[in-house]
Simulated scan of single mutants.
Amino acid sequence: MSKPRAPLGLVSRVWAFIEEPKSVTLVQAVGVYTTAIIFGALSFLHPPRTTSVILGDFLVTSISSLMIFAGAVGVITSITGWWWIERPLAVGFLFVAGCLYLYSVVEAQVLSDGNRWLQIGFIVIALGGLAARWLRIRKANYDPVT
């Protein structure tokens, strides 16, 4: 007769709940989506002046709101493996927000003094990361391996 196993602790249960591959899931949930929530909220509370002048207050508020919403949905859906929800509502909305912000930075580069190439480069890198995530989960309902 085998010995009864001790119940899993809270940390072990949470760790077991996180979708495989856990390293990718944690980078996506904590590194990308939590960052979107934090910086979306900061931008909502204190809109960047240059972007507000170029896009207007409504679009800056919209970008910030998209970031907060997409980040919140993304944390939940990436950890649980609900990729069919993550694709449009997290990756898609963050991609749209990033494209709008990229437009404002490119316009500022073209129409005003100063150099914004570093910003443009990092925005394009971030959009590439989102595109890679979308490609990784594009056909998946629950498991990107299938």
Score class of each variant (00 low, 15 high):
Ala140Ser: 13
Ala36Arg: 02
Val96Lys: 06
Tyr142Lys: 13
Ser112Cys: 01
Gly129Pro: 05
Val53Asn: 13
Ser12Tyr: 05
Ile18Ala: 02
Leu111Cys: 01
Val14Trp: 14
Leu100Lys: 12
Leu94Tyr: 04
Met67Arg: 13
Pro7Met: 03
Asp113Val: 09
Ile68Lys: 09
Ile76Gln: 11
Val145Thr: 15
Leu127Phe: 00
Leu10Tyr: 08
Phe58Ser: 15
Asn141Phe: 14
Arg13Gly: 09
Ala131Gln: 13
Gln28Phe: 09
Ile38Asn: 03
Thr25Asp: 01
Ala126Trp: 04
Phe17His: 01
Gln109Leu: 01
Gly40Leu: 06
Thr35Met: 08
Arg116Trp: 10
Arg133Phe: 11
Gly98Ser: 13
Phe122Ser: 12
Ser23Phe: 04
Leu26Ile: 14
Thr50Asn: 11
Ile79Ser: 05
Ile76Leu: 11
Leu26Ala: 02
Arg136Asp: 13
Ile18Arg: 00
Phe93Leu: 08
Gly56Thr: 10
Val60Asn: 11
Cys99Ala: 15
Glu86Trp: 00
Val73Asn: 06
Leu102Ile: 00
Trp15Gln: 04
Val53Lys: 15
Leu45Pro: 10
Ser12Gln: 15
Arg13Leu: 07
Val60Ser: 07
Ala6Lys: 15
Leu66Cys: 14
Leu100Gly: 15
Ala36Thr: 00
Ile18Cys: 05
Gly31Ile: 06
Met1Arg: 10
Phe58Ile: 08
Ile37Thr: 02
Leu42Lys: 08
Ile85Val: 10
Ala29Phe: 04
Gly56Glu: 02
Val30Thr: 13
Thr146Arg: 15
Arg116Ala: 12
Ser62Met: 15
Tyr142Ile: 08
Leu59Asp: 10
Val105Ala: 03
Gly31Glu: 01
Ser43Ala: 13
Ile120Arg: 04
Val145Asn: 12
Leu45His: 04
Tyr101Asp: 11
Leu130Ala: 05
Arg49Asp: 10
Phe69Lys: 00
Thr61Ala: 00
Gly81Met: 10
Leu100Thr: 09
Leu59Lys: 07
Ala16His: 11
Glu19Cys: 05
Thr77Arg: 11
Ser52Tyr: 08
Pro21Met: 06
Asn141Ser: 09
Val14Ser: 03
His46Lys: 10
Met1Asp: 04
Tyr33Val: 02
Leu130Tyr: 03
Thr25Leu: 10
Pro144Tyr: 09
Gly92Pro: 06
Leu102Thr: 00
Ile123Gly: 06
Thr25Pro: 10
Phe58Cys: 04
Ile63Arg: 04
Pro144Ala: 07
Gln28His: 11
Gly81Trp: 01
Asp113Phe: 15
Gly81Tyr: 03
Leu55Glu: 09
Arg49Met: 07
Ile120Lys: 05
Ile123Asn: 05
Asp113Tyr: 15
Leu100Gln: 09
Arg133Gln: 13
Trp84Leu: 14
Thr80Asn: 06
Pro21Gly: 00
Gly81Arg: 04
Ile63Phe: 06
Val73Pro: 05
Ile137Val: 14
Lys3Ile: 05
Leu89Ser: 08
Leu100Arg: 06
